[in-house]
Nucleic acid binder design. Structure first.
Lengths: 343, 343
DNA sequence: AGATTTAATGCATACGAATGCGTAAAATAA
DNA sequence: TTATTTTACGCATTCGTATGCATTAAATCT
């Protein structure tokens, strides 16, 4: 059996409550006793029994991370682990554990958020799932458990008021387009995606804004849609090869579609960057495998994860942090070969 | 406040113990009471307080999954999520939650396995981390908490006796080589990797065995080493271009190295499969992006994950399952283009 | 019917830590 | 020195569930 506060109390000749207070660094304990108790605890490798603690203090020191059931293409899969890693690391640094779970149990059809909530297994939620439904949000809001969206912009972000931190997608679209424009491109194709989250729409908005700010015209004929996969990027080009006549550059709203598009162009004898410039979005590792190495928009995963955790824990500790907050981090452009070499 | 067994007891006019027994489906309760209590519980959306339950019953219904600190190249990252998903799904099906954690806290330098163990936060461990040290294994063995290795073969698998389930790496190497041999190839290059886990060594053994069984000679000059990355596969070819004279086929022990190798070959004017046949290992999605589509060895992730969980829960439930078990699942060959088309 | 076994339920306590409240000891003030 | 405040600790209870044991009610046997 593991050692308990009661055991330590006996050894230190104090009461169990005193031990508890020492270990929690209560100010009402003398330095002498504190030192004595802490020493004994250390020597015996004492660890709190998490459940006794949670039961009594109503805090679990664990955070629920809600994962997407399915990811949206290869790109999601590839980034997924770094997102998760950063979240875990940030939370572990703050001495929290993380329970990962899908939004619902595929077998029992139970809502895992509700279940974890009712069972009191977590102190709060980080939601990496863009497809969360309105009802679950409502449930979360009705309890006072803190939760925050990370990375994915919830589809209802315009109408609902929730905490979230993500990259500034608008700005990402803007800097991608701006880079192309600054290189002299005037007729740019944009490959977006219909998607549950709001990010692709925002990238498109950023793209449009950059055109506008540079006095370039925009019309919907410049806008094409894939489904985020390599194949869809490939297919968009194949299906619209004649539309390419007027175009000197392409902004593909994720790297996979960009790479698929490059491949399709290559098969049609069109070279990147010589004939057409290309910029992607995400900065996946694959960008550095096949030439031309892709110029793309990089998302600062680590910072976003850290900020998400920081904010969540803040909400956890101060009961009166009810104001919602939208935190957007600026992405950066990483310039490689696919727009030509000129700095 | 959430509803408790005591509340239900009051409503049903029975004692709290009776409620507890009903909800746990104890055989010593009459059907009538059971039905009555269950109905009330259902109507009020009762959920056990996990901590009270764990404290009292000494069971947490949560499993710790130990993740690798770093993954080994892109390939690991790509597969990672499907492994994790399958594990979570399997465990949720059995009504277990999962706490994910690294082997050690990067900041406090605490051993997370020991910590979770001492805090009683988990009932058992699934270890996806190949780099676990001997000391931690010893600690785990000394407690009676069940644990099992999944996917990665621990480096000490030859000397230590632990439960694990993974793909039959030997067989994977064997079927890859056998496929090439059956197509008439006699001089085959093998690109392996020096790696912390045991899998690459086993793939090499399988490769050798296939040669032997087909009365083909083997010598160490056929064996080359990358580090599992695309770049390393590329580099192996670049550095040994003259060795290719004698060769008609290559077995690269993972897809990334295979694709890197194909790229390097292409740059030297050597085409796959026309000039050289290639077979990889892993079946990552990237295999279907660029031609030639890679023939490769597929690992049955879902089955392995499911078996891992099943076995762990079995160990959890029967205290006398002390015999260690090594469970190896056969991989399958998925034939695409990189070995030529002939069936 | 009376005795005995069996089934169904309640009582009381344990699990381990947190915490409000009371109190003794120490420090300060009068 | 005595009165008063402050500091440091202990006592007792609580959190919600599980479970051994006692008890009552029902069923079976003689």
């Amino acid at each position: 059996m593991a050692i308990t506060t009661k055991d330590i109390a006996k050894m230190a000749n104090v009461s169990q409550s005193t031990v508890s207070r020492c270990l929690n660094d209560s100010p009402m304990i003398s330095e002498k006793t504190k030192k004595k108790v802490l020493k004994i605890a250390q020597e015996h490798g004492f660890q709190f029994n998490a459940h006794a603690r949670s039961l009594s203090a109503n805090r679990t020191y664990t955070i629920g991370v809600i994962l997407p059931k399915s990811l949206f293409g290869f790109e999601g899969e590839m980034h997924f682990r770094s997102w998760q890693n950063e979240l875990i690391e940030s939370l572990e640094q703050m001495e929290f554990d993380v329970i990962v779970s899908f939004f619902e149990n595929r077998f029992t059809k139970q809502n895992n958020i509700q279940r974890l909530l009712a069972a009191k297994k977590v102190d709060g939620f980080i939601i990496l799932e863009p497809a969360l439904d309105d009802e679950t949000i409502t449930i979360l809001e009705q309890t006072d458990i803190p939760f925050i969206f990370c990375k994915y912009i919830p589809p209802f972000y315009k109408t609902r008021d929730v905490d979230f931190v993500c990259v500034d997608q608008f700005k990402g679209g803007y800097i991608a387009a701006d880079h192309l424009i600054k290189q002299g491109h005037k007729r740019i194709m944009c490959i977006s995606a219909n998607h549950i989250g709001g990010e692709f729409g925002l990238r498109t908005e950023g793209f449009k804004a950059a055109l506008r700010d540079n006095n370039l015209p925009y019309n919907d004929k410049m806008l094409f849609y894939g489904d985020t996969t390599f194949q869809s990027g490939y297919q968009v080009i194949k299906d619209n090869i004649e539309a390419l006549r007027d175009i000197t550059a392409i902004f593909a709203q994720n790297d996979l579609m960009a790479l698929g598009a490059i491949q399709a162009l290559k098969e049609s004898g069109i070279n990147v960057p010589e004939d057409i410039a290309m910029v992607g979005f995400d900065d996946i590792e694959l960008c550095t495998f096949y030439q031309p190495y892709l110029t793309t928009v990089h998302q600062p995963t680590k910072e976003i994860a850290a900020l998400t955790c920081k904010r969540l824990i803040e909400k956890l500790n101060s009961t009166e942090l009810t104001l919602k907050q939208k935190l957007e981090i600026s992405p950066t452009l990483v310039i490689r070969e696919s727009c030509g070499i000129n700095l």
